[in-house]
Each structure stands twice: as C-alpha cells, then as structure tokens.
C-alpha cells in the first residue's frame, strides 16, 4: 500500500481496530494485566422468540459483521426458537403486552390515529396474533429485510459465529438436526463468557 497524497480523504475501512489497540490506555500499575487487546468484538445474547424480538439481534449482528466486527451470537431460552428449523419459519408477533402497538395505516382514517395505542383487549381476539404477524412480515418484506431462516443464512455467510445455549437446548428437548446449519455448537453459558472475552455485549 502507498502513502496518500496530501489532503486525500479516504473512508475508514477498518484500521480502527489497530488504532484502538495502540491508543488504549496501559493497564494501571498493579491492576489485572489481562485486558483484551484484539479486534473489536460484539456478543449478542438473543433470549426472546417473538418475531419482533428476533430481528434486533439479527440486524445488529449482520450490520456488525459488515463493519468488520467479530460477531458471536448466543441463542438462549426462547431465543433458541430463532435457530430451530422447526420453529423459526413461524415466529410470531403479538400486540399483547405491547403498548407501543399502533398502525401507520390508521392515519388515513383520521389524522393522529396512527399514533394511538391499540387497545390491549383487541390482542386477545382470535386470529389477532396471526394477523399482526402477517402484517409485520409484510412490512419487513417491503423493506427488503429477509425472513428469519434466510437471515440466518446471510449471517452465516458473513462469518457470524452462532451458538445454542446448552441448558435451553436440553430444557426444550431439542435435537442437533433441528439447528440451523450456521449454528457452530451447543455450548454452556461459561463457554460463551470465555468466547466473548473483550466483546461489547448486548442482551436482547
């Protein structure tokens, strides 16, 4: 690589990891000298199996991988449904317990209605969860966001490391054959803590 001409502006393509390691402060004298010095890492703990709670982890993981960050995702408790091939096509969204549920389309009926919270009772009506799920999936598809199984393929291709939680796996009586092929292993919480050393950790 050559040196840049004077005044040449070039986007940051990932020298930042190296920079961070050189500018990070020396560990305080007498302190633990084991501070992590490697490239930027992100650990995502996905614990929810609702459709709307599956996406934040998938989107963040994908975004981080695309930024050259080393990504580790731990699927635990209900989050295991995201990587279970028997369930991940059918994750659902319910408006129950979600007071932020409002429909942009209602604004066409009357101005302001698009910001109105939907009555919780409506969510209990038969078919409401199916309808809300269908709507959310359509909104996602309109924005060209892949469905969950395809998203996992994308993450896997992007080099994101995915793991299933051993305890949840046993508790749900899962079998390895049902795991999405991108899942690298069924590991314990302690294993994940080791793997995610030095990572920024997000619990979802």
């Amino acid at each position: 690589m050559r040196t840049l001409p004077e005044g040449f502006i070039i986007p940051d393509f990932g020298g930042s990891a190296a920079k961070a390691t050189t500018t990070s402060p020396e560990p305080a004298a007498g302190g633990e000298a084991t501070a992590y010095r490697g490239p930027r890492k992100l650990a995502l703990i996905c614990s929810k199996g609702n459709l709307d709670m599956a996406y934040p982890g998938l989107i963040l993981g994908n975004a981080a991988a695309g930024e050259g960050v080393e990504v580790h995702m731990f699927f635990t408790f209900w989050g295991l449904d995201i990587v279970n091939k028997k369930t991940h096509k059918n994750l659902k969204f319910t408006m129950l317990g979600n007071t932020a549920m409002h429909m942009p389309e209602l604004g066409y009926l009357r101005t302001g209605l698009e910001h109105a919270s939907m009555p919780q009772l409506m969510g209990q009506l038969p078919g409401m969860t199916a309808m809300a799920t269908k709507m959310m999936k359509k909104q996602m598809a309109d924005l060209e966001i892949p469905d969950v199984p395809e998203f996992l393929d994308l993450l896997s291709a992007a080099g994101v490391h995915m793991y299933a939680c051993k305890l949840s796996f046993d508790m749900m009586k899962m079998i390895e054959a049902d795991l999405h092929p991108g899942v690298e292993g069924v590991i314990s919480a302690a294993d994940f803590i080791e793997i995610s050393e030095g990572a920024q950790t997000i619990f979802i």
Partner: peptide, 25 residues
Amino acid sequence: LRRMQAVGGFDVKDLFALYPGKPAK
C-alpha cells in the same frame, strides 16, 4: 450486501472473501 445477493446473485461469503473487513463500504 443483501441486495447484491438477492438481486445480483452474488454469494455473500465470496464478497467477504474478495473485500475483507467492510465489504459493502
């Protein structure tokens, strides 16, 4: 990257291999 795969027919894995780090950028 997702559009490159869905519309362009490129393999995301290949793109990461060709342009390591921040392929899309």
